[in-house]
Lab assay of single mutants.
Amino acid sequence: EVDTLELTRQVKEKLAKNGICQRIFGEKVLGLSQGSVSDMLSRPKPWSKLTQKGREPFIRMQLWLSDQL
């Protein structure tokens, strides 16, 4: 189980620290539009309420944070 709230907090922190905009992060890392990324980072759904497809971007965020992506 992933703590989506904590994960998105860490992602936002790393984006800010490295000067990466959400649009680029969305396109290059998540394969999503800036609007989708913005929504996901500001209002993450609980892991238990996400479908497999809904969980994929959060898994990619985890990999990106651990420099595996």
Rank of each mutant, 00 (worst) to 15 (best):
E1D: 02
E1V: 06
E1R: 09
E1A: 09
E1K: 12
E1I: 12
E1F: 10
V2K: 14
V2F: 12
V2L: 14
V2P: 05
D3E: 04
D3N: 13
D3W: 05
T4G: 04
T4C: 04
T4E: 06
L5S: 05
L5A: 14
L5C: 12
L5Q: 12
E6T: 08
E6R: 07
E6W: 07
E6Q: 04
E6H: 08
L7R: 12
L7E: 14
L7M: 15
L7G: 12
L7I: 11
L7A: 08
T8M: 08
T8A: 11
T8P: 07
T8R: 08
T8E: 05
R9D: 06
R9E: 09
R9Q: 08
R9F: 07
Q10Y: 03
Q10A: 05
Q10I: 06
V11H: 05
V11E: 06
V11N: 08
V11W: 03
V11A: 05
K12G: 01
K12E: 03
K12Y: 01
K12L: 03
K12R: 06
K12V: 03
E13C: 06
E13H: 07
K14I: 12
K14S: 07
K14H: 13
K14G: 01
K14A: 11
K14D: 01
L15F: 07
L15I: 10
L15Y: 09
A16H: 03
A16G: 09
A16V: 10
K17I: 04
K17P: 02
K17Q: 13
N18T: 14
N18S: 13
N18P: 12
N18F: 11
G19C: 04
G19N: 13
G19S: 13
G19D: 11
I20P: 05
C21Y: 02
C21M: 12
C21G: 11
C21D: 09
Q22E: 13
R23K: 14
R23L: 06
R23I: 06
I24S: 10
I24L: 14
I24A: 09
I24F: 15
F25N: 00
F25W: 11
F25A: 00
G26L: 07
G26Q: 01
E27L: 09
E27G: 11
K28R: 09
K28F: 03
K28Q: 14
K28S: 09
V29M: 09
L30T: 01
L30E: 02
L30W: 06
L30G: 02
L30H: 01
G31M: 03
G31H: 11
G31N: 09
G31S: 08
L32F: 08
L32W: 12
L32P: 04
S33P: 14
S33K: 14
S33V: 11
S33R: 13
S33W: 08
S33M: 15
Q34K: 15
Q34Y: 11
Q34N: 14
G35W: 09
G35Y: 08
G35Q: 15
G35H: 12
G35A: 13
G35M: 09
S36F: 10
S36C: 11
S36Q: 15
S36E: 15
V37F: 14
V37W: 11
S38Q: 14
S38E: 15
S38H: 13
D39R: 02
D39P: 07
D39F: 03
D39Y: 03
M40G: 04
M40R: 08
M40Y: 05
M40H: 04
M40K: 12
M40A: 07
M40T: 05
L41D: 03
L41W: 05
L41C: 02
L41K: 06
S42N: 10
S42H: 13
S42V: 08
S42M: 14
R43S: 15
R43Q: 11
P44W: 09
P44D: 02
P44A: 09
P44Q: 08
P44G: 04
K45N: 04
K45T: 08
K45Q: 08
K45I: 10
P46G: 15
P46Y: 10
P46H: 10
P46L: 14
P46K: 10
P46I: 11
W47M: 01
W47Y: 01
S48G: 13
S48H: 13
S48Q: 10
K49Y: 04
K49M: 14
L50S: 00
L50D: 01
L50H: 00
L50V: 01
T51C: 03
Q52K: 15
Q52L: 12
Q52P: 14
K53N: 05
K53I: 12
K53M: 03
K53T: 07
K53Q: 08
K53C: 02
K53P: 04
G54P: 01
G54C: 13
G54Y: 07
G54V: 12
G54Q: 15
G54L: 13
R55G: 01
R55I: 01
E56S: 06
E56D: 06
E56G: 05
E56K: 07
P57N: 14
P57L: 15
P57G: 02
F58A: 00
F58R: 00
F58G: 00
I59S: 09
I59D: 01
I59G: 03
R60I: 01
R60Y: 01
R60P: 00
R60L: 06
R60C: 01
M61C: 04
M61T: 02
Q62F: 01
Q62Y: 04
L63P: 01
L63I: 06
L63C: 08
L63V: 09
L63W: 04
W64M: 00
W64Q: 00
W64R: 00
L65F: 06
L65V: 04
L65H: 01
L65M: 04
L65Q: 00
L65K: 01
L65R: 01
S66K: 15
S66E: 11
S66C: 12
D67L: 02
Q68Y: 09
Q68L: 11
L69W: 08
L69G: 11
L69Q: 10
L69Y: 10
L69S: 11
L69D: 06
L69C: 11
